[in-house]
Write a protein that binds this DNA or RNA. Structure first.
Lengths: 181, 181
DNA sequence: AGAGTAGGTTCTGTCATTGAACCCACGGCC
DNA sequence: GGCCGTGGGTTCAATGACAGAACCTACTCT
């Protein structure tokens, strides 16, 4: 991918020779990591991202396109007529789970909050350790075997239907089912 | 006219009830994580951050102040006359290491690059896993026991003195010594 | 006295983000 | 057949963060 010319703002960290900077050039923009998080939680549709994130429509469209181009999400047609696409996390997107998990742990500790969501090993029920491993089984838990459950700090009756769908315990990557009103 | 309340841009993810969003409100702004990374690498002085990051001076001043207020860095006077301060990572800043490590791993895999820097457990020499754990010792390696070494992809003769100081293998958090010209 | 250095602040133009409005294709209803 | 609702976008003006350069202030060195 050859980018010619000056990219004055936003994305590049020109002088940085560092994998962290390379990563942040892609997922370091505002909203991007939250979109990926939602994709791992099972959100797939444009409209579901929209209401769950409270993100401006134009920004969401830009981010979805960029994440698709970078191979982090895959745009997949799920019906013709009218044409409708969903965005599903690829392996490359799933590989961001450790980073998201680490950020979430830090965010919780930083605020001294009670957990908003908890993550367990689906096979044995043990809560994941600091770095996404299962202390009981002594293995790194594959993302599809992570069971997400609401924690004590989470609002039990949120306004938007996506948040409501995420209230029940569920495995990561399982597509959410939004209750139609 | 005083405008109260609405923070239109930048920092907050108002609707998000999520530890990851809480974390990103603090360390999700442009440059912020790179400043923390440099602090863990041992950079402490305003001028060293400046030349190593290539960040605008005003932005650096803002970030350092914010990170200090959030308790991620500590501003510490190291000489009077003229008054000079250095910025040192606190426990809260050091706790960001797993997230930085995970991002770095992902960035490297994403680009299929050879490693720019490698990180080992100083006690046993094993290279760290995705979250900064030692696969051999099966423990999370304390940051001060992480040995950083240049990888094959790193420029062997960088222009700025801070990058040169970071070329030799060193433990994280050890203050860098810049060769005066 | 003059130059140099560390650590900033101020300024201006550019660009991304926001929020709202608009667009369009289809499907269902009556 | 006309109308409305819905999913999935695009366009637009206003705002405000960022980049880069110039400037400022103490102090030290020569």
């Amino acid at each position: 991918m050859v980018t010619v010319g000056v990219m004055a703002l936003g994305k590049d960290y020109a002088t940085q020779e560092c994998s962290i900077a390379r990563a942040l050039e892609i997922v370091g923009e505002r909203w991007t990591l939250l979109v990926v998080r939602d994709a791992l939680y099972g959100v797939r549709r444009y409209n579901d991202f929209l209401v769950h994130l409270g993100i401006p429509r134009a920004v969401l469209a830009t981010r979805l396109q960029m994440l698709t181009e970078e191979g982090i999400l895959e745009k997949r047609r799920y019906q013709e007529s009218p044409p409708r696409d969903e965005y599903v996390a690829t392996d490359r997107g799933i590989a961001l789970w450790p980073a998201l998990r680490a950020l979430g742990r830090w965010g919780r500790e930083h605020h001294g909050e009670s957990a908003l969501r908890t993550f367990h090993h689906a096979e044995c029920g043990t809560e994941l350790g600091s770095y996404g491993e299962c202390p009981a089984c002594a293995t790194v838990v594959p993302v599809e075997d992570v069971l997400m459950a609401p924690g004590p700090g989470l609002d039990p009756d949120p306004a938007d239907p996506v948040s409501r769908a995420l209230l029940q315990p569920r495995r990561l990557l399982q597509p959410i089912v939004v209750d139609q009103v």
